[in-house]
Amino acid sequence: MVDSNLQTEDRDVLQDLAERYGVEGVRSCYACGTCAAGCPARRVNPAYNPRKIIRMLVLNEAKSLLEKDTIWLCSSCYTCQERCPQGIKITDLITALRNLAVQQGRSPSGVGMQANLVRSQGRLYALDEFDDKKRKKAGLPSLSPQIEEAVRLLKEES
């Protein structure tokens, strides 16, 4: 059922989350804080607070949420999702929010650079000679700097 409390834009966000990303039951959150308590990203940067993110979604603040960098601090460890007593897919929710933000052209600059790296090389961290040296010492074959299969798949996808 549609939440009549929400403004249209926020309503769309919740609907999107449910329909396109399968993130449902966000409103069943009772703000226990289990997600925030176990979050390793929050330990490093207290600005990241999954409990607050869910509250903001429920209380008409989705727009400002997408504008902020905080959703990009999640390390996708899935601790919150495993622990949520209400069964909310919190990590999936954060991923979905990031997707929505990107669609609206909002993402921190570093994220774009990382995406370009994956797109061109097929991996997030570039290989250098040092890595190959270590592999050689361990008797392993050297790697190609580009994972061709991955690059091809990503190209096909886009």
Binding site: V2, D3, S4, R27, S28, Y30, V58, L59
Partner: peptide, 9 residues
């Protein structure tokens, strides 16, 4: 909650 009744502490 599912029917959109909102709870604020």
């Amino acid at each position: 909650k599912a029917k959109g009744i909102r709870y604020v502490n």
